[in-house]
């Protein structure tokens, strides 16, 4: 195997231990893996931000009827992550997404062990234009790493790119989603990045308005 980021060959030690316990092949080399920082220690119970408060300031600002029960993220946002996301999502390097598979699947086992078995995964969709441009939906790829049933029940209307907006502009946005059916089971929303949480809450709100009770979110990165 070669590292998905730097394309150096990944060497595994030849030892009896590795011979008897063949580990899963690694997707990133040691050096590149160490550049990705997982969220650890105290985090906001609602949005996964690293903080000493139990609920961070931004989350206290959401009104009382927050449609989202909680969000869990795996990685912190840093420069390397930004470069990787740019290549994976904007340049459309689908294969690079597998670099996150292991940690994303493990994080699910760790944080969502309590979740009901009939929970359905709803990946946050892209608009049709963007999907044609990139060829794939990165949230769908992440959802594929998880062992639950998927239900692509949301559709996105045409809007401008989120990444270019400020927090205030994002909060003021109209709901960009349409619902294509009904779900009355618990839902786990999956997306690549949680920045202000507006997108996820738009999706959650429209799901709740149509009879969905429990809505969680699982994202790769807490921006």
């Amino acid at each position: 195997m070669n590292c998905l980021w730097c394309d150096q060959a990944i060497m595994v030690d030849v030892s009896w231990f590795h011979f008897l316990n063949p580990s899963k092949p690694k997707r990133l080399c040691q050096a590149c893996e160490s550049q990705l920082i997982k969220i650890s220690g105290h985090r906001c119970q609602k949005c996964s931000r690293s903080t000493t408060q139990s609920i961070c300031y931004d989350c206290q600002r959401w009104d009382n009827d927050d449609p989202l029960i909680m969000n869990v993220s795996v990685y912190r946002y840093n420069e390397r992550m930004q470069e990787m996301i740019a290549k994976w999502k904007y340049r459309g390097d689908y294969t690079l997404g597998y670099a996150f598979q292991h940690d994303f699947a493990n994080g699910f086992q760790q944080f969502f062990s309590f979740i009901e078995n009939d929970t359905q995964i709803v990946p946050i969709p892209l608009s049709t234009d963007r999907l044609l441009e990139r060829g794939f939906n990165q949230a769908k790829q992440l959802a594929d790493f998880l062992p639950l049933k998927q239900n692509q029940i949301l559709e996105r209307k045409l809007t401008e790119k989120q990444a270019k907006k400020t927090r205030r502009q994002r909060l003021a946005m109209k709901n960009p989603f349409n619902l294509l059916g009904r779900i009355n089971k618990p839902v786990l929303l999956v997306d690549d990045i949680y920045t202000t949480g507006t997108t996820l809450r738009h999706a959650a709100r429209i799901l709740r308005a149509n009879g969905c009770q429990k809505i969680y979110a699982y994202t790769l990165i807490r921006g």
């Binding site: 340049r91 060829g135 794939f136």
Partner: peptide, 26 residues
């Protein structure tokens, strides 16, 4: 190792793409 495959949304099959020159457009 510098070729990838992705489930092409347009054609609904797995397609090969080049990862080496992807910075210039896939």
């Amino acid at each position: 190792s510098l070729f990838g495959k992705l489930p092409c949304h347009v054609c609904q099959v797995m397609h090969t793409y080049c990862r080496k020159c992807i910075e210039m457009g896939r």
